[in-house]
Write a protein that binds this DNA or RNA. Sequence first.
DNA 1: CATGCACCTAGACTATGTCTAAAATCGGAT
DNA 2: ATCCGATTTTAGACATAGTCTAGGTGCATG
Lengths: 132, 132
Amino acid sequence: MKAALDLLRDLGVQPTPQRIAVARFVLRTGRHPTADEVLAHVRRTCPTASRATVYNTLNLLVDRGLLRVQVLRGGRAVYDANTERHHHFIDERTGAIHDVPWHAVTVGGTAALDDFEVRDYQVVMRGRKRKH
Amino acid sequence: MKAALDLLRDLGVQPTPQRIAVARFVLRTGRHPTADEVLAHVRRTCPTASRATVYNTLNLLVDRGLLRVQVLRGGRAVYDANTERHHHFIDERTGAIHDVPWHAVTVGGTAALDDFEVRDYQVVMRGRKRKH
DNA sequence: CATGCACCTAGACTATGTCTAAAATCGGAT
DNA sequence: ATCCGATTTTAGACATAGTCTAGGTGCATG
């Protein structure tokens, strides 16, 4: 994983401390943080960071394709650094969201739907994460 | 489809005019209305109906299993009278949500996931509805 | 130093949904 | 019919997520 600094530069975006802090956190974590979780984390190194800046930066990264946004956890938007196609598993107990690799699940029949031209899809699963 | 009045009685719930109006609309429409759409419709016959009552009644029907709630359309909850298992197709242009019959799409591999015990799942598709 | 530009901040604003206190209504007992 | 307690409804306050705006800061350039 490239440094957040370089990633921002590659986008032609000024690498301000606020943007670096957002990018560092959200692109490295394997979790699926909400905007407020990002804000809370960014404030640890950048205490005056505002809500608007965090949202602006997240939306910027989404626009540029480095990040995906999904409305999953009870109607809140979560940001997902995994931009490859994948499915999602939501733990009923904890609310945690886990990525499921694309090829772990097979889906058939979407091309045969008469009424719908399917351009994208994903499987959203719910249940319990197994302990090992 | 039974009358809304009888459905409410079967649930052991007092069939007030407000509840009947909510149930009639939401259980009969094939669309996937948001709470505000339900409220707007209910007010046509029951102009003083309040937001709280609509939410209370919708949540009641969800608890009793007559209705499903999904967070789909841009983070808003939509209510779905189709409580059978089915998938969803979201039209990118209009935002309209369409039901896709369970057997129109096949999903495999969910049982073989090592880390997750999948209790329920659905395929969420996006694209364009075909015109006929 | 003055100007302009990109950025950031605080807070106002909107929208969805929940909660509360008080008013209205219901059903049963008299 | 009337009273009473329980349920329901209402209006509005509140909570939360997210967007927008006005103003301020800092930096580069002339």
